[in-house]
């Protein structure tokens, strides 16, 4: 009797914790919509911050633009090294010590706190190379931050391609690069793309690295590489931390969350498309 009571209690714990996760997400989204939703309109999205202190009126257009510039730059700088490293790990480096070491380095890089990446780029780009607080420095910091994400996701997508394709291509005497570009990469494309989207989302939400390298309280975010930019997550931090406007903070958080949900859902659906391709 006691035994079954304990069992039931345990079972209840499992259910509660599972439903708790669901509740967390629903309450975050629900609360932000409740508090921030009423303030989102075309003026908020499309105009610059104004009022005194700055941000109490107007909108967040430069912050949206700045975030888009930052993540675009980060992706441009990180996809080629990221993809090539992934290709090495899955196609070329199947024996020896080097791939083990590279894997370990990439894993360790994934664990490096984002503020440390910011610190490094601050010393290298902002101070030593004289870029100053700039879009370029922020893009570089974010690129370094998402590099391991891109390597790991692309590597896993490539490794998931059935080895029979490699075997058959090899036995037909097709060259290695032809196999890679015409057989393996197209079959892993959806998964690789999903990884890029995840990296985009990760970069769009990152605050600490751009806080020390790129972000300004107010900027036009024109896309000039050596100028500071505004960014959504930093703008949210400033609105809250400087007690500028809670309403606008909630609305900014909602816009940021919406952008990230969109990117992540797209990535998840690409991932499941990849799984379907793999199982065929």
């Amino acid at each position: 009797m006691k035994r079954t009571l304990m069992d039931r209690l345990q079972m209840a714990c499992f259910w509660v914790s599972g439903l708790f996760i669901l509740l967390v997400l629903l309450s975050i989204i629900g609360y932000l919509i409740w508090r921030g939703g009423p303030f989102i309109n075309s003026e908020f999205i499309m105009s610059s911050p104004s009022g005194f202190p700055l941000g109490t009126e107007g909108g967040i257009f430069p912050a949206i633009k700045g975030t888009l510039w930052l993540i675009l730059l980060a992706l441009i700088m990180s996809i080629i090294p990221g993809l090539l490293t992934a290709i090495y790990l899955s196609e070329y480096g199947r024996q020896g010590q080097l791939p083990v070491i590279i894997n370990l380095l990439v894993q360790s890089m994934a664990g490096v706190p984002s503020i440390i990446t910011g610190l490094f780029v601050y010393a290298l780009g902002v101070v030593t190379l004289g870029w100053g607080i700039s879009l370029l420095a922020g893009g570089l910091a974010l690129a370094i931050m998402v590099f391991p994400v891109i390597v790991i996701s692309s590597r896993d997508a490539l490794l998931a391609v059935d080895d029979n394709y490699r075997l058959v291509a090899n036995s037909l005497g097709v060259s290695r690069s032809y196999t890679l570009f015409r057989v393996i990469l197209p079959r892993a494309a959806a998964g690789i793309l999903a990884g890029w989207l995840l990296a985009l989302g990760y970069a769009a939400g990152a605050t600490a690295p751009i806080m020390v390298t790129a972000a300004a309280i107010i900027a036009s975010s024109s896309g000039a590489l050596l100028e500071p930019v505004m960014a959504l997550p930093y703008h949210l931090y400033i609105l809250f931390n400087e007690h500028i406007s809670m309403n606008h903070a909630y609305a900014t958080a909602l816009v940021l969350l919406g952008l990230l949900l969109f990117i992540n859902v797209l990535a998840l659906s690409l991932q499941s498309l990849q799984e379907r391709i793999n199982s065929h």
Binding site: V24, L25, Y202, P233, Y237, A253, L261, I263, N264
Partner: peptide, 15 residues
């Protein structure tokens, strides 16, 4: 669970 990992820390911190 996947989407929760994608929510940025500044949003968690803010809330």
């Amino acid at each position: 669970v996947n989407i929760l990992t994608g929510i940025p820390s500044v949003v968690y911190g803010f809330l």
